[in-house]
């Protein structure tokens, strides 16, 4: 009898544990940013467990050419946390193929958060804003994440079997790592010489951008963008953080829109899955 009691107790404990683990994720109709003392920087941070999840349905970008004609990413699951000065989003979507190596015909996985510059009733167009209605975009890329994670800045880091006889800027008498050598290397990398943020090794896998309509995306003032993406079997889990939208007080709302690119599906630029505007509530005192 004692033996049976032990077994029953174990079964009850297992059931209780299972119930706790499968606790229903709180789903909300809007993105709710909960208050926390510290922003979670990692997608696996325990702080995310306390944030409700909004599953945003995605639609293909099909208004501006070139369009995405075949839907891919069905939804992006969004959670948000704010510490009162900054806001962090965690975006998760299904994509078993990790695409983080740039190359001809190779696109990178990516995602972005878009927020109107001003909190006002008359919203900018959800597709990149419009003239006079600026949107702020915080953009994360998988190949930048690989760079931040330690991938080197040579062609061999992308193509391990590559052999290169000679780069003119690595020849004598130029000393390795010298200013003269760096200066000459820039001559063969015009985008880097011009300071194009798309170009070169990264310290963060995200960038701050602004837009006033399709095709107008450009560098924006720094909103302190940070991010980290981790790929698992099912797909990506990416944290994007930035300054809290200006004027967004506790229990007030603005809007956010999200976009996802699957590199494996050759998505880049305007070929993307996107959401419309979704209310973003800053919860808290």
């Amino acid at each position: 009898m004692k033996h049976m009691n032990w077994k029953t107790a174990a079964a009850v404990a297992a059931l209780l544990l299972a119930a706790a683990c499968s606790k229903q994720v709180e789903r909300t109709q809007e993105v709710v940013a909960i208050a926390a003392a510290q922003l979670p920087a990692d997608p696996s941070d325990g702080a995310w467990a306390g944030a409700p999840e909004h599953a945003a349905k995605m639609i293909p970008q099909d208004l501006v050419e070139p369009r995405l004609m075949t839907p891919t990413t069905a939804e992006v699951r969004v959670r948000a946390v704010t510490n009162g000065s900054d806001i962090a989003f965690r975006l998760e979507w299904d994509d078993p193929d990790q695409s983080d190596t740039p190359g001809p015909s190779k696109m990178s996985d990516a995602c972005a958060v878009q927020i109107p510059e001003k909190i006002e009733k008359d919203l900018p167009d959800p597709q990149m804003g419009k003239v006079g209605k600026l949107v702020q975009v915080t953009y994360w890329r998988a190949d930048w994440q690989a760079s931040v994670n330690g991938r080197g800045d040579t062609i061999r880091d992308l193509y391990p079997n590559a052999t290169v006889d000679h780069y003119p800027f690595e020849a004598k008498p130029l000393e390795k790592g010298s200013e003269a050598q760096k200066e000459m290397a820039k001559r063969y990398a015009p985008a880097r010489a011009l300071g194009n943020v798309r170009s070169g090794p990264r310290s963060v896998p995200v960038e701050d951008l602004i837009a006033t309509g399709p095709g107008t995306l450009s560098r924006g003032p720094s909103l302190g963008a940070k991010g980290k993406g981790v790929h698992a079997k099912q797909g990506w889990s990416v944290v994007i953080s930035r300054k809290l939208p200006e004027g967004l007080g506790p229990n007030q709302r603005t809007n956010a829109a999200f976009a996802v690119w699957q590199g494996g599906q050759r998505e880049s630029g305007s070929r993307k899955m996107r959401t419309g505007w979704i209310p973003l509530l800053r919860k808290g005192q």
């Binding site: 740039p102 985008a191 798309r198």
Partner: peptide, 11 residues
């Protein structure tokens, strides 16, 4: 037009 994987731009 060629894509440069090191600069991330087309040249």
């Amino acid at each position: 037009v060629f894509f440069n994987p090191m600069t991330g731009t087309s040249e």
